[in-house]
Design a protein around this nucleic acid. Sequence first.
DNA 1: CCCTTATGCCAACGCCATTGACCTTACGCC
DNA 2: GGCGTAAGGTCAATGGCGTTGGCATAAGGG
Lengths: 234, 234
Amino acid sequence: MPKPVVPEERRRRRRPTRSGTVLSERLIVDTALRLLREHGSSGLTARRLGLALDCDPSTLYRYFRGMDDLTLAIGDALIGQALRGWAPTGRWRADLEAIGLRIHAAYVAHPQAALLTASRVTGRAHELAADEAVLDVLRRAGFPLPETVRIYHAFIDQTLAFAALDSASLALPTASQRADEDQWRSTYARLPRTTHPRIAEAAPLLARRMLTSAYPTALDMLLDSAATRLEQPG
Amino acid sequence: MPKPVVPEERRRRRRPTRSGTVLSERLIVDTALRLLREHGSSGLTARRLGLALDCDPSTLYRYFRGMDDLTLAIGDALIGQALRGWAPTGRWRADLEAIGLRIHAAYVAHPQAALLTASRVTGRAHELAADEAVLDVLRRAGFPLPETVRIYHAFIDQTLAFAALDSASLALPTASQRADEDQWRSTYARLPRTTHPRIAEAAPLLARRMLTSAYPTALDMLLDSAATRLEQPG
DNA sequence: CCCTTATGCCAACGCCATTGACCTTACGCC
DNA sequence: GGCGTAAGGTCAATGGCGTTGGCATAAGGG
């Protein structure tokens, strides 16, 4: 049977590690984020984390049931970070845009971590707070309940989905991340007009646009559609 | 130095494995897809693949440079499957809807494999064909070139992003995949009305809707926005 | 101040991908 | 039809991984 994990708020004894550092959930998560940034999305290992914290890898199991549990904690930290200090303005479209862009930005700021967590539903505190905020904005805007739920679902999943996708390309090892303008040119602009005429004519525009995230555009289009329905119900 | 890999079309000798089966790229990829389905997205290992094919794990390195190379081959197979047999109807909105849903469906039909490949850009033949098709539909519909590129980018990334996200939840080990209605009830419906009033009032609707993919909704909203712009340029 | 037990540490297990050396047999050539 | 070559299957080994059970020790409540 696995060792029991004591929840952070119940922790009484704080016994320092042999080298003197005192562990905590917070410290572990922060260190994990650093390792992810430094060693890539597969660079977070119990052994490495133990090395970085100067403790035995097995000690981590006093704080998390396993690496997967730690992963979820990392995800919750990202969401918490995204909404810290946010407050609604009362203008529903601006508020939703802000929430979406903030969450997306928080994930993309830690692409290696986002890759591991963006598609996990944690049900933890920060995530619930974000959901409540989105629903509240929509209800106050005047959307009926079924429409609110419909839009909420599309909104939140689209945000997380783009966060994961955009993180994936950012987290690639820099060797294969020559996905800059030159890379796009060499892949798309050299296609012969005879076989791929549409790509050929669009190549310069594509080369410029594909370097950026499509999330802001997709978000605007989603909000366009919602606004139309608010004006013309049914 | 790693062993050289002979491309499939150059293969001359077909030496059977000790148990008599004759290997090929095709056979390996198909077996890999089966293993992924049976053992989950982390269940594809060289050892297991060797066991299933009745060959030594190291034999696989005669066919692929490594497991990552095999992963890309799997992704290529999925894309090919998505496009097989599609033809445009001339109605732009229906065509885009069909392309999006087909790609999304092909990935989600192999969620464990999709998880590994959906966010990898290959630039290979089938992917280029899909891009050309989307651009062609938009241009024929009458969108100006910059608008075409803008919508294309949002459309294709939205499709892939949702494919990855939806695959992720489908591919979870069945133990933690109690994300059915009961799970949603226990997570969301038990939140007190005092702290999370919006979630509380929406809980029944949420429990039903969150079980399905938000992609069709998000796709419709994107196409709504595009249609509006086509009618009212600028 | 003492006892309990939380918490850190150690050693070990069974996985994993990958490699280099070896061997055997299918095939192209004469 | 036989033969030499090298393609391709196999073996053994390396160093990494997550995770566990047992153990020692010191923190902190009483």
